[in-house]
Design a protein around this nucleic acid. Structure first.
Lengths: 368, 368
DNA sequence: TGAATTTTTGTTAGCGCTGTCATTTTGGAT
DNA sequence: ATCCAAAATGACAGCGCTAACAAAAATTCA
């Protein structure tokens, strides 16, 4: 008779064996209940669930990951989004993960590392996540997506519409941008400036297209002097401000393709004592908290980022779940497009004189 | 001869066995090299490392977690900090994790759930993290800390100084606040308002104390009419603005105990056409990106959040590592205090009419 | 030189689950 | 009842690694 020697002190943790014993079934049946597998009699299921509750059992993720085919972890790769963007995205991802008993592992690729795709695949192989959620700009990089496809790792994107198949959610940036221009043109503006975004960013092109489309629909000419190439940061918004406000004939309205740049522009306008929105209308994009913190509050486009991230994560988790079933019909593309409504706040108004823009830098705003 | 039947298709992954075979040693020796254990001959270590590189091997975290005593994961619990705060904190935590081959698992406690401590311990038992990093305000909640101590889970806090022993990093909120008041008083302000923070927040009290200390040192009287109770959000900053700016004798300077409230206040001041900083000086706290986005850029206190989070994570990982060695001397408290320098920007200047010497306002940001 | 250490390496047994496959039970259809 | 398929349950072998212990090799010391 071999003495059962305990090599390591028992951690005291409740295991699946305890649950099996307590409910009088085999561990396999407990496992079935835990994983919502079919072919368990309702009464048995209830008994096991009761034991789980009584013992306050929760499965060991490491053991699950080792024995099973999934680690029950997804990764969120983020590049360089704004804090607000990331914050809202994380909220959505976590909400979906919590509902599905999945964990979230974060990763910011090293910006020094030149090869983004390699840096992403390395993260995947080290962390053994079951899938990846990608947000811009890293979600827009084809080489990264190609790399993920070659290792057959499921992923979902929160990204601008770029025609690439796969899993993802999006807003129609082009349409939303055109709406902004329509709003400005509707107010009577005829010279509408545009601050474009970072050239590597997928949304940049579609927002610019939306701007041009909006002009077209409003019967306004496109003038490339009215387009300033920004970088999605407030510094470039400031530079755009210097550029536009020193023109001989400045635009009467400027559409910045994100809120940060709009805020930078607003700052410069304040410094130069332009009255906003009387002398210059400004619109942004994203509806970050910033847009309600600057003064006047910014007219902008609302992006339901939290909700988009939530939905994208759900799509990802469904795909991960469907991987086992060799159900090819589940492997199709799935892109969901969300509304991005215009939110009119305090920075847009009709131009001072509808024919010509003559912003005279006025003296200080009056004191009380 | 028993046919070696492969139950599941091999995942094709490189395992520790492959590395052992490739380098001609046992798997245990490979394990030693991987975990930087002592008593491995340098030449052997080199050979194993070479094999690891050649095969592009990385250990399976699930297997490690199951076999070993650590999951090599730490958790970050966040309550309700600002996006900027969280963003910077995550950057620091990830930096420390990457250096130590640890993963990060995020968790936002359900705000509905009344029992915060229980919600935290449940996360711990589900996720099996080796330790927890806590940031405000959840890091300030004694019941949560007590709960963690009772389950003996290592944790580190990024928190205001509250005298509680343990692992943590901090800035001296009181001192920094006093500096702000000293700066304002130095400019000649004699009526200095204060917007306090959320009452549940640990920093609130020490910043208020710093305000009072600063007044004391500047020989100014404390007047509780000049203290407005805010909530750390921009909305309460706006309410504070309404309150202060409608006083018969409004303060000539207002110190908001975070940037959000300062921004709200600034917004109201703009709406009422007060000239900033000529008619009213405003100072904030935190040095979030917001402080450089509003106009004029905000005088504030810089908090090295990323660095603090990095350091707190290092302390946590050291503690986790030291747990095995029954080295009691490693179980001591360790609180590191970081500098939080005043950054003077555009919202502070001498009062319109001042009896005292008037130092020139600087536009440049300058640490004191 | 040889024995006593010390250092280095190897062997083996799980960690707590899930996958495979075997077995038992159940519910119909005869 | 009787047989048969389908549903429900169980037995057992790993997943890839680390902990404990055992053994071998290198080093030291008398």
């Amino acid at each position: 008779m071999t003495p059962t020697r305990r090599q390591r002190p028992n951690t005291g943790r409740v295991t699946i064996n305890d649950v099996a014993e307590h409910s009088g079934v085999s561990i396999k049946t407990v496992s079935r209940v835990l994983n919502n597998e079919p072919n368990v009699r309702p009464s048995t299921r209830a008994r096991v669930e009761e034991a789980v509750r009584a013992l306050d059992y929760s499965p060991n993720p490491s053991a699950r990951g080792l024995a099973g085919t999934h680690s029950r972890m997804i990764g969120l790769i983020y590049d360089n989004p704004s804090p607000n963007y990331l914050f809202r995205a994380i909220a959505g991802v976590l909400e979906a993960c919590n509902g599905a008993d999945y964990g979230l592992s974060l990763q910011a690729p090293n910006p020094e590392q030149p090869n983004l795709a390699e840096s992403v695949t390395r993260f995947v192989s080290r962390s053994r996540v079951d899938g990846l959620l990608l947000i811009p700009p890293v979600g827009d990089v084809p080489s990264v997506l190609d790399a993920l496809e070659s290792i057959e790792l499921p992923y979902a994107r929160v990204s601008p519409l770029d025609g690439r198949p796969g899993l993802g959610v999006s807003v129609d940036d082009r349409h939303a941008s055109a709406q902004v221009v329509a709003h400005l043109a509707g107010l009577g503006h005829e010279r509408i400036g545009f601050i474009s975004g970072h050239p590597d960013h997928g949304a940049t092109q579609s927002r610019l297209e939306g701007y041009r489309l909006g002009l077209l629909r409003a019967n306004l000419d496109y003038d490339d002097k009215l387009v300033f190439e920004g970088m999605f940061d407030s510094e470039s918004g400031r530079r755009a401000g210097d550029y536009f406000l020193e023109m001989n004939e400045p635009p009467t309205a400027i559409f910045a393709s994100n809120d940060e740049m709009a805020a930078g522009l607003l700052q410069v306008a304040h410094e130069r004592n332009w009255r906003i929105p009387e002398q210059l209308s400004i619109a942004g994009f994203d509806d970050t908290p910033l847009s309600r913190t600057v003064w006047p509050p910014l007219t902008t486009v609302h992006q339901p980022i939290r909700h988009m991230a939530l939905r994208a994560t759900q799509l990802l988790l469904e795909r991960i779940g469907a991987q086992d079933e060799a159900d090819a019909s589940d492997r199709v593309s799935r892109i969901e497009v969300f509304d991005a409504p215009l939110v009119v706040r305090g920075t847009t108004a009709p131009p001072a004189s509808s024919h010509r823009a003559q912003p005279k830098p006025t003296k200080e705003s009056k004191s009380i």
